[in-house]
Design a protein around this nucleic acid. Structure first.
Lengths: 338, 338
DNA sequence: ATGAAAGCGCTAACAC
DNA sequence: GTGTTAGCGCTTTCAT
């Protein structure tokens, strides 16, 4: 077996079955629009199985025009688990439609990106998914325009590019509602310092949820910290000084840092303060003590929706990126208001 | 521009340049073994650029036999950042040699796996990297044998399969040495409960390091816990009861759990006890307080070495998997022995 | 109902 | 030096 030359071709099967390659092609592809006697079908199929024939996808694609590849360029496959989930979602969906994923990692390097896109173009990809590991605005690389493409987890205003992004505002609302539902009314929000769609979206969602609950917005309850463990740790004093019994943190990493700070002060979660994070970063959120209630960033769904949009199975026309829901992930860091 | 039919072919360039396709092919591939006048070269190149010709990789591969694809099947792209690093390493190395990565995610599902391998075979991959997200023994899927393949982060004893795995023993030794170097002599080791190459390897490395330092092995200093935060938390009492000032934990996740437990008891790291983890799981290790000193699992290198072995650039013959070094990652959780 | 043959875009002998 | 041409393995009219 193994490599290269020895492979069984359509011709081989045809010869062995005493039919033409056309006939074999028809049965191999199980084409119902061609009339073949059942006898022939069976006989040929039997030979195909016996010889262990495997179609050559390259030849197939060449002959039929248009390949079955979908390219996925990611900027940070290695650094976070997020990219992995996008890949996973994209792949599942692609396979469902008979496509195969060609992935390229650029780690943010522009040359690598250009090269990646170019390689995909050369492989006649059906289209390209251009993804970033965190939700942000981006500029469409010119080479991308040579293909059908959709932005995943990023967007380019006014660039006439289809895009799929997480619904940050709904996510912020959901996070806040998790606390509201437990009876809390004075809820703090620790936002991130970095301007980004997540920062504005989550804040908007927070305000929206409060408004819907008839709670006036109090800017004093909104703090800012870097979006990582250090930020959560450092904001602890300010947050605690607010005297709130509930807080929605920008992300799970801040949550982890805050947990440390709280424990250091002898405070317990959720008895002393209920916490809701964001991202649902498994390794962290699910294993903190207590496990952190959070809102998930739908990376898998983003990848899947990306190929759906690419394939025209779902609409995401024009200026408005398609927004994917961020679902709540209740765990144990929220307690009923005293 | 865009999709499908409109693409410029070799023929188009040939016509526009008034030469034959062969000539264009030669200059496009920059083949030095063919003598062409510089004039022709330049003229053709100019037309290529002007028309924006892009070779069709499918046709190229078909015509030349053997494709430029390397398949990578992973069992858990989505669940951990580890798979991402393997992909990244494999891709960088593959590109370096003109190959492109075809990735498939199976999430442990056997059907998905079979389908993935089959799809890769149909695409005439040069070979397949079969990877698992944690180091373990595996059985080679029969379909894999139809291709050239190498196991990455897993191995199959007696199955005549090339494999690349992390050097757990050296890793265990390195972790222990990190503590030894700080002057510690009574060093505990919290192993994992699950039998695995990592469990036996790291223990062996621990013992080896002690032996090399002339310290007798004391089985009482070796504990067991589940390889996660919960394990680290739960083993705290036992570990602390040992009265050691230094411990090497099975992984960073246990480290995170232990940090919690230590803080809860008012102990501080590394003053009260020095800790070394394993895995170098970024999100965790780099952001604990204090940042956790650990030993890295060389996933990137594993992926890269995998393609090198596949391409025959590196040897990994027979029964002995190629062992890749696990480098130390000193951070701040180790203090000099009092 | 099945076969013959013309490509798909490119590479690689082999001519001239 | 450069052009011709026969495939690579398959799909797809068009005959028969």
């Amino acid at each position: 077996m193994a490599r290269g030359q020895g492979r069984i071709t359509l011709q081989d099967v045809a010869d062995a079955a005493g039919v033409s390659v056309a006939t074999v092609s028809f049965v191999a592809n199980n084409r119902q629009d061609v009339r073949l006697t059942d006898a022939t079908r069976e006989r040929v199929q039997e030979v195909i199985d016996r010889l262990g024939y495997r179609p050559n996808a390259l030849a197939k694609n060449l002959a039929s025009g248009g390949s079955k590849f979908i390219g996925l360029v990611a900027d940070a496959i290695a650094t976070t688990p997020f990219a992995g989930q996008i890949i996973h979602g994209a792949q599942d969906e692609a396979w469902k439609h008979g496509y195969v994923l060609l992935v390229a990692n650029t780690e943010g390097n522009e040359d690598a990106e250009r090269e990646a896109i170019s390689m995909m173009l050369e492989h006649q990809v059906r289209g390209i998914l251009y993804s970033t590991w965190f939700h942000r605005e981006t500029v469409v690389p010119t080479a991308l325009r040579e293909a059908d493409f959709v932005l995943v987890d990023c967007f380019a205003p006014g660039a006439d590019a289809r895009a799929v992004v997480p619904d940050e505002q709904q996510g912020g609302r959901t996070a806040t509602e998790l606390l509201l539902a437990a009876g809390h009314r004075r809820i703090a929000f620790v936002n991130a310092t970095t301007p980004s769609p997540a920062v504005t979206g989550r804040l908007a969602g927070y305000r929206e949820a409060l408004a819907a609950a008839g709670i006036p917005y109090d800017p004093a309850l909104v703090l800012e910290a870097t979006p990582d463990q250090e930020g959560g740790w450092e904001i602890a004093d300010q947050l605690l000084a607010l005297g709130v019994k509930a807080a929605f943190l920008y992300n799970d990493r801040q949550g982890m840092g805050f947990y440390d700070a709280a424990r250091r002060r002898g405070l317990s979660i959720p008895e002393d303060i209920s916490i809701v994070g964001f991202d649902n970063q498994e390794v962290i959120a699910a294993h903190l003590r207590p496990p952190l209630t959070t809102v998930a960033l739908p990376h898998y769904e983003l990848g899947a929706a990306g190929v759906r949009v690419l394939l025209g199975l779902e609409d995401a026309s024009g200026e408005t990126p398609l927004r994917v829901t961020c679902p709540p992930v209740p765990r144990e860091s929220v307690a009923a208001a005293g």
